[in-house]
Simulated scan of single mutants.
Amino acid sequence: MNRWFMTLLASLGLLLIVSGCSTKKDEAPKDPKAAAYDFSNEKSFVVYGEGIAPVHTVSPAQAIVLAKRAAITDGYRQLGEKLYGVKINSSETVKDAMIRDSRITAQVNALIKDAAITDATFKDGLYSIRMEITMSARRWHELFSY
């Protein structure tokens, strides 16, 4: 009986040692819920805004400034869409089995802070910007875990 017990104990010990050595400490968690609470990195979003210079302006400088404002506004809108989503409303009027009127409206309501313009170019009347927002994963989770 004593020999049987010692053999069982030695087998369990060997099994624990082998299984403990085979697990990797640096491996990412396989559970998706655990990955959602990984606060070790940053989340980053990049968008590209574009604005066209108007034709009828007082000066070329005014056209460039207006195109730049349009590009920045487009960039903020795109960030708002990515972070908060878009609300879509639609309505249709049908008369005599035909569509008489169809309206679709898209709306974005967002508060964007700390977005940075990382690149800007103006070529052939088109102002293009690259806008980026970066936040810690912990802050991301606080804002968007609903």
Rank of each mutant, 00 (worst) to 15 (best):
V65K: 04
K43N: 12
R103N: 11
D38E: 03
L66A: 03
D114K: 08
T121W: 01
I88E: 14
T118E: 06
L79Y: 02
G125L: 04
I17E: 07
Y84F: 14
A63N: 06
M1Q: 10
S128K: 14
N89R: 05
D119S: 04
M131F: 08
D31L: 02
S40A: 09
Q107K: 09
H141D: 10
K33E: 14
E42A: 13
A137Y: 02
S136W: 07
V18Y: 11
K87I: 13
I52M: 10
I64M: 12
S19L: 10
D26H: 10
A67D: 06
A67N: 05
R3M: 13
I112P: 00
T118D: 02
H141M: 06
Y48H: 14
L66W: 03
Q62K: 11
R100E: 13
S40V: 04
G49P: 09
V86P: 01
N41Q: 14
L83E: 04
T23E: 11
T118I: 10
Y76M: 08
M135R: 10
W4C: 04
V86T: 15
R103L: 06
A116I: 15
S40K: 08
K43F: 04
A97G: 06
G85R: 07
L9C: 10
G125I: 05
H141I: 00
D124K: 13
A67I: 05
D74E: 01
D114L: 05
K25W: 11
L15V: 15
F144H: 06
I72M: 11
V108E: 03
D38G: 05
W4A: 09
G85F: 11
R3S: 13
